[in-house]
Design a protein around this nucleic acid. Structure first.
Length: 759
DNA sequence: CTTGCAATGACTGAT
DNA sequence: TCATTGCAAG
């Protein structure tokens, strides 16, 4: 039982109290994952059957890692019987099991955001509504929040508040779109992300036997990141826990950052109402970060009004101050950041994986990526366009989807003319009209596929030439469908890829992009091969099994290619992670906090929590940076530093020199500085008032006298010793290649490497 | 039906 | 800036 000895008192209490409702409020870096992991291990040691444990985590990767650690503690293969994963993945599996009870096919498709937006666009067009008024994005989030609050289209229409809101915002027909969207999803045998939770609630509501079964199956329920659950998730958990009430939720109200997805802090605050005899444990000791970082983060979060009282502290050393870096443009921010990473890595002999660059929006990754590429440093960008969202991958997956579920309308639309087979817009419109017609005039549920596959039953006005092409497509798809449960996933996937013509189509494209698309398909196929080989003997390895949770996979879940790389991601994606050196970039008003969040206190406080999350990712060093101007939609806009920087006590901050002088840009920078009206160094006035005790750095310029460097000069480096210049780059010179007898050729950035000319 | 070009509007965040 | 959409010509 030595693993329990590593816990502090509140952690130990949270682990050892297993019965009844428990809430753990866990400050950043306070070891909550450890508590959850050990708690499950402890439960198993106490004789609880692992089949009776349900653990809901924020990513599937976290679930996998937890299982691994539990296995190490309890040994044997028992840990794999714990049901664990994200809400979406756990309940999509349960839904598959009972799909027919809800009228869905077992192989129902999961529509991702793109699919459902595309369907919404179609519907808006069909209803002859103006898509400038009914913006697909806005409609989508409206419907999403309705679903997250468990409002069916009928309930939506019956709710006068909501209907009034829609009317006042000039969108009185919103409920029709919702109704139609719901109908079309059902016809297509498809659920969107919100449906996975919504339909689970419906399943439990309408089928008490099913609910009863899972209530008794999951005697112990653990929920991580509870502050980010929405009403729909809250209700699922509440229903499941109703019998045994062995529910343990872990969260931190200060890290609630998903309200845009319907997350509701009230779930934490309401816990005591639902379970009056609950036990509360607070984990307040931070084991992750330096005192400086913990205290700075506390300074920031103190500006929020609504929070659960807690006092996060640490025994770790004070550590270094948080560096504040000001640059003139977003591009310069990229260069300065990457150069600092490069320098820090060498000075501290750190790994690339010790570094993370965190930003507010995905679009900010560009300038960092460019600099990283120029410097030849290994990096990985998480989020943004993930592998499974690339067009070529979505296309081939659409073939697989349609094979597993012919009703899938979005999949059909995607591939009916890919690769090109002469079935264009006009034909598709005719088919859609026909399907709609037969839906209204017969009692059948008629999908697009039904129309093209049964021309005798559902005739439509299509010229004979096109008809022939359609028939060929139908015959091909049907042959895939026959193979669905005959061939294993890899064989069928490979077969479809080649006989659909996709591989040929991509192979013929010899542009770099085309080659990379072809490689992506190959990568997908080898992923499927791996899946096929990795399936346990008692499980099936059909293509439909592989497809089951592809839609739910994210970059965070993709297995680490255990390559040593610098991490770039949004702050949202960084939740739960930690890095030695963290760079929080783009700290500018209207960017972070986001412009969209400035209208209400609630939204601003969420931005602040987001900043809190960002800072608390750091273990030993944290750097905050901002640019005084940045490109947005192609034109330069000026910006001022984020209010969040000011909220950190100045004693925790230090202004970094911004001495970047690369690539002959000094002149440009100077003139821009004049134009923008920034001060010569340090922060603009507003911030200076708070930073008066920070010593102003005089612009040091070590590279100045090095401009006379010539190839062949002898130089001295503080670590590598004497060497000879063999190459120079940049004008003015920014980079030198120097041969050192001790270590060989080294590329040095003049502004960092303190070179001394010795003749 | 396909291709190519011009015009347009999007950048929060993500299961 | 970049990806998507609309329109005209082949």
């Amino acid at each position: 039982m030595n693993y329990l000895d590593t816990l502090n008192e509140p952690q130990l209490n949270a682990v050892k109290n297993v019965d009844g409702p428990i809430m753990v409020i866990a400050g950043a870096g306070s070891g909550k994952t450890r508590v959850l992991t050990y708690k499950i291990a402890y439960l198993m040691e106490q004789g609880v059957d692992s089949f009776n444990i349900l653990s809901l985590t924020f990513t599937n990767k976290a679930a996998k890692e937890m299982k691994g650690r539990i296995s190490e503690i309890v040994g044997g293969g028992e840990a794999r019987n714990v049901t664990s994963g994200t809400f979406h993945s756990v309940f999509s599996r349960i839904l598959r099991h009972h799909a027919e009870k809800l009228g869905y096919p077992q192989n129902f498709t999961i529509y991702d955001t793109q699919d459902s937006r595309s369907l919404l666009k179609t519907i808006i067009k069909e209803l002859k509504l103006d898509d400038k008024v009914y913006k697909p994005n806005g409609v989508q989030s409206r419907i999403s929040s309705a679903k997250n609050n468990l409002l069916t289209p009928a309930a939506y229409q019956a709710n006068s508040d909501i209907v009034n809101e829609d009317r006042q915002s000039g969108k009185p027909r919103m409920f029709e779109i919702y109704k139609q969207y719901e109908k079309r999803c059902f016809l297509a045998g498809a659920m969107d992300f919100d449906d996975l939770l919504f339909k689970t609630n419906i399943l439990f509501r309408d089928h008490p036997d099913v609910l009863h079964f899972y209530q008794h199956r999951f005697k112990y329920i653990l929920v991580d990141e509870y502050q980010d659950t929405n009403y729909s998730q809250y209700l699922i958990v509440k229903k499941l826990a109703a019998v045994f009430q062995n529910i343990c939720v872990v969260g931190d109200d200060a890290q609630s950052i998903y309200s845009f997805r319907g997350a509701n802090i009230q779930n934490i605050l309401n816990f005591k109402n639902d379970y009056p005899d609950y036990k509360l444990y607070k984990l307040e000791q931070n084991y992750r970060s330096s005192k400086t970082i913990v205290n700075a983060a506390n300074d920031v979060i103190a500006n929020n009004t609504e929070q659960i009282q807690k006092d996060v502290w640490t025994d770790n050393e004070v550590g270094e101050k948080i560096r504040v870096v000001r640059t003139l443009t977003d591009n310069e921010e990229g260069k300065v950041t990457i150069n600092n990473i490069y320098e820090t890595k060498i000075n501290n002999q750190a790994e690339h994986s010790d570094f993370a660059i965190l930003y507010r929006t995905n679009a900010q990754s560009r300038s960092f990526e460019e600099s990283l590429r120029k410097m030849g440093l290994p990096y990985k960008i998480y989020g943004g366009l993930s592998f499974y969202q690339r067009a070529e991958i979505k296309n081939i997956l659409a073939y697989y989807r349609l094979t597993a579920n012919p009703q899938d309308e979005e999949a059909l639309k995607r591939i009916i003319n890919y690769p090109k087979r002469g079935i264009g817009k006009t034909s598709m419109e005719k088919i859609a009209i026909a399907a709609d017609h037969y839906n209204n005039t017969t009692t059948d549920d008629v999908s697009l596929w039904d129309v093209i596959a049964n021309p005798k039953m559902y005739p439509c006005q299509i010229p004979i030439g096109t008809r022939t092409k359609l028939n060929a497509f139908v015959t091909m798809m049907q042959s895939f469908m026959i193979d669905l449960e005959k061939k294993d996933a890899y064989d069928l996937a490979q077969h479809i890829a080649s006989s659909s013509g996709i591989l040929r189509d991509l192979y013929s494209d010899k542009t770099p992009e085309g080659v990379s698309r072809y490689e992506n398909i190959q990568a997908l196929l080898s992923g499927i091969k791996e899946f096929t080989e990795g399936v346990a003997e008692d499980e099936s390895s059909f293509l439909a099994d592989f497809m089951m949770d592809v839609a739910l996979l994210t970059d965070a879940d993709s297995k680490d290619d255990d390559k040593d790389h610098i991490t770039l991601m949004t702050i949202h994606a960084s939740k739960g992670l930690e890095f030695k050196y963290v760079y929080v970039v783009g700290l500018e008003e209207n960017l972070f906090p986001s412009q969209m969040a400035l209208n209400s206190r609630e939204e601003l406080e969420e931005e602040r929590r987001l900043f809190y999350v960002a800072v608390t990712r750091a273990e030993s060093n944290c750097t905050l940076s901002y640019a005084t101007s940045r490109y947005r939609w192609g034109n330069l806009i000026t910006s001022e530093p984020s209010r969040f920087i000011e909220e950190i006590g100045s004693k925790h901050l230090v202004l970094a020199k911004t001495t970047f002088k690369g690539g002959g840009r000094s002149l440009n920078q100077k003139s821009m500085e004049r134009k923008i009206g920034g001060t010569q160094s340090g922060l603009p006035k507003r911030t200076l008032t708070k930073l008066t005790d920070t010593p102003k750095k005089v612009k040091g310029d070590t590279s100045h006298n090095l401009q006379d460097l010539k190839v062949g000069y002898n130089v001295k480096h503080e670590r590598f010793g004497k060497g000879k210049v063999v190459g120079l780059e940049g004008s003015p010179i920014s980079k030198a290649t120097v041969f050192f007898p001790k270590v060989g050729n080294k590329q040095l950035l003049l502004k960092f490497a303190k070179l001394e000319i010795i003749g």
